[in-house]
Structures are given as C-alpha cells and as structure tokens.
C-alpha cells in the first residue's frame, strides 16, 4: 500500500465531509451529529488514511493499532473514514439513521466494521484505552492505542482518573487526541465549564502535549507520527465545530440537527468549492 500524501489526506477529508452530508440527509428527521463530526474530519482522515497501522485493515489483528472514539457521537467522521478504507461499504453507509441499520448514532462494537468499542457515554474510553495499552506493553507488542476525545467531554471526572493513571503507568503507547472545537451542547466550553489551559493541565497530570491546528493535515500528521517519549501523548487539536459549512461553523444548534434538502445543497456546494472540485 502506498503512503497517502498530504494532498490525498485532504481529499479524503473532503470526500468524508461530502459522504457525511449524504448520510445526514438520508437520516431525515432522525437527524445527526454534524457539527462534532465536521470538526473531526481531518483528524479521522489522518488517522485512518496514514497513521493507524491496522494490519490488512483488520483492527482485530493483534499487531494492529487500536482506535477508540471516546467522543462517540462523531460517527459521521468515523463511519465515513472506515468507508474510505473499505471496512464499511457505501451501501451500508446508506442505512445510517434508518431502521435495521448496524450504524447506530453511537457506534456499537463490531470488529467486522472496524468498530472496537461501543461508545456514547462520554468519559469512559480513556480507561478502556489504558487497559489496551497496558496489555500491549505486558505482551511486548508494539502497536499503539489512540483515543479521540472531545473538549466538552473533558467535564467528566472519569477522564481525569484516566489521565492520572496513564501517566502513572508511563504509557507512551497511548495517544489521546482532543478535538477542541470549544462548543458543547449548551454553548461554549469556556462558559459551560471552563477548561482553561488544557495543555498545562495535561502536562501537570504528567502527559506530553502537542498543540496543532486540527484542520491542518500536515500538523496533525507531524504530531501523531512523532517518536514516542516516556509518557503518554495528548495532541490538542484546535478545531471549528461544523468546519467546512459556513452556516454550521461555531453554531451550537448543529451539534445534533436535521438537514433539509436546501441546506444540503448549500453545504455540498461549499465543501466542493473549498476543495476546488
């Protein structure tokens, strides 16, 4: 398999955005978490397009990297990434939001589809990831464990139990990526429950940190491919909720919403134009 270039990863993110819009439209009145997916498109594209070594795209393989979506509501970025690498078929993506689908609003664990964890309840994946990382170290395996977290999600205290434990065990095979889009359900994170200086907090907990523009594929790649140090690594990705669609960007209501045909048309046009398609 050839290594995806930065341009190809950007194209992948664009393709995922367009597919996500198709899925959100198809979900009809059930709606979808568009905002939180749009902020994570580049992160997911870089992970699945280049960073994760999934061993013949089979996450169940013992030597493959592990990925957990702790902010599990970003399924439109997760399912579309898995579709890009062929683990979920385009046909199956079309079932999203419809009765009988295997693609729930929050992912249900399914190794066949590349889904390693049933997420949805925020703040729980970090502990699980620590278990995976401890096992890898004990068995002398070289794979890494990646967790994608939201910034609003960091309100949950269980995350901080996990941050403390990961540093205590010096799990340098664990990487947390924080999709810091600065909006949670009720409003701006700094207004609802201020995170303050997240980098300083994580460093105080014993993590190494890197701060990047979460929509810059090159920056994400550099941070995620960096050589492991002695401690777990947190990549703080500064993002825009709803990124790529002007009327969704930084708008609280697009956390979860339905998409009309007119809105869909406008959104697709913007995403295509931004990518010069």
């Amino acid at each position: 398999m050839t290594v995806a270039t930065i341009q190809e990863l950007q194209q992948m993110a664009t393709s995922m955005r367009l597919t996500a819009l198709d899925m959100a439209l198809g979900a009809g009145r059930n709606g979808a978490h568009l905002g939180a997916a749009m902020s994570a498109m580049e992160i997911m594209a870089v992970l699945y397009g280049r960073v994760l070594h999934l061993g013949q795209v089979n996450p169940a393989k013992p030597d493959g990297d592990r990925f957990l979506a702790s902010k599990a509501h970003c399924v439109l970025a997760h399912y579309t990434a898995l579709a890009e690498i062929g683990l979920i078929s385009r046909e199956e993506l079309g079932t999203f939001g419809k009765s009988g689908t295997r693609l729930a609003g929050h992912p249900a664990m399914n190794p066949e589809l590349g889904l390693e964890y049933s997420g949805g309840s925020l703040g729980q994946a970090i502990g699980f990831a620590i278990g995976l990382a401890l096992d890898a170290r004990r068995k002398g395996r070289n794979h890494r464990v990646f967790v994608l977290m939201g910034d609003g999600e960091l309100n949950e205290g269980s995350n901080w139990e996990g941050f403390m434990a990961a540093a205590h065990f010096k799990l340098n095979n664990l990487i947390a990526i924080v999709d810091k889009n600065q909006l949670q359900y009720d409003g701006p994170t700094e207004e609802i429950m201020a995170l303050g200086d997240l980098g300083a907090k994580l460093q105080a907990f014993g993590w190494q940190t890197a701060e990047v523009d979460g929509h810059d594929v090159g920056q994400l790649l550099a941070a995620l491919k960096s050589k492991p140090g002695d401690q777990p690594l947190a990549v703080i990705a500064n993002t825009i909720k709803g990124k790529g669609v002007s009327f969704m960007e930084n708008v609280r209501e697009w956390h979860h919403s339905t998409l009309s045909q007119a809105q869909y048309n406008m959104a697709v046009k913007e995403v295509r134009e931004a990518a010069s398609l």
Partner: peptide, 10 residues
C-alpha cells in the same frame, strides 16, 4: 470508574 475501564480493556 477508571478501574472498570482498564479492566474492560484488558
């Protein structure tokens, strides 16, 4: 809470 997460990962 973290203990249960770690247990499940293991």
């Amino acid at each position: 809470q973290n203990m249960l997460g770690v247990a499940s990962g293991l």
